[in-house]
């Protein structure tokens, strides 16, 4: 296995006294799509928040490009090239669509993504670029959230439940853009409740159960039975 882009090493995470992750380990190699699946409350979002620096952890628990970033706050992590599409989209409601995208690119990290490239990826946003982000449909909001994250030209894009609350046809449409994002050189970690969607999109899968990695393997070879066992702890 080549040197991983992201190397999470037995990560523990806490909300106050409550421990959400117990020694979770995960690797992402450049160019890969890694899916993290698991039931509600298994720690999927917590894992992404730790990687993105929203929750800080032990310095050596997260390595990115070989450098320890566990202690780095979110604004420093994004400067290194990790962007998070947060769960529930969380657009800036008093900013227009275009302003949301611009603020995603405010660090000025060089790379393939620019306003015009985002509008190429999501043509629907071009017509709505002046609209307040709160007036968009759920699918359009998710496009803005993904575009906003891409504007920082990340080496690693973390997507937290991009299918949440969206119609299946909209979800398929969003997932159909992922190959274009990969083709520009970003690697992906997707957190999903929708297991079939996750297995289709990913090279490798990690299954979290109550804060621990219960199963890992290539998306093509994992059996339904194994996933089901890891999911429900049967």
């Amino acid at each position: 296995m080549p040197e991983p882009l992201l190397d999470v090493r037995s990560l523990d995470a806490f909300y106050g006294d409550f421990q959400a992750l117990f020694g979770a380990s995960l690797k992402v190699v450049a160019g890969e799509v890694v899916a993290v699946i698991g039931a509600n409350g298994a720690g999927k979002s917590t894992l992404l928040k730790c990687v993105a620096g929203v929750i800080t952890s032990r310095r050596g628990a997260i390595l990115f490009d070989g450098e320890p970033i566990g202690e780095a706050p979110a604004h420093a992590v994004v400067a290194r090239g990790i962007a998070l599409v947060p769960e529930g989209r969380r657009l800036f409601s008093s900013l227009s669509v275009e302003e949301n995208l611009l603020i995603g690119g405010q660090l000025g990290r060089p790379g393939p993504w620019s306003l015009s490239r985002i509008y190429e990826l999501f043509p629907a946003l071009w017509e709505r670029r002046r609209a307040p982000s709160s007036l968009l449909s759920g699918g359009e909001q998710q496009m803005v959230a993904i575009g906003r994250a891409l504007m920082s030209n990340p080496k690693l894009l973390l997507c937290d439940e991009i299918s949440l609350g969206l119609a299946p046809i909209v979800v398929r449409d969003l997932y159909s853009r992922l190959p274009s994002i990969l083709a520009e050189g970003s690697s992906l970690v997707i957190v999903e409740q929708d297991i079939m969607q996750a297995l289709k999109a990913a090279n490798r899968v990690y299954c979290l159960q109550e804060g621990r990695i219960a199963l890992t393997g290539s998306a093509a070879t994992l059996t339904r039975e194994a996933i089901s066992a890891a999911y429900f702890g049967a």
């Binding site: 993105a52 620096g53 929203v54 706050p73 979110a74 604004h75 994004v78 400067a79 962007a83 998070l84 947060p86 969380r90 800036f92 409601s93 008093s94 900013l95 302003e99 611009l102 603020i103 995603g104 405010q106 660090l107 906003r148 994250a149 920082s152």
Partner: peptide, 22 residues
């Protein structure tokens, strides 16, 4: 851009940090 950063931080501090704003 200055004002955009102010408005974004006002809307959602956590996500503003994800955009690289300290």
């Amino acid at each position: 851009a200055f004002g955009r950063a102010f408005r974004a931080t006002s809307d959602d501090q956590t996500v503003a940090q994800l955009m690289g704003l300290d």
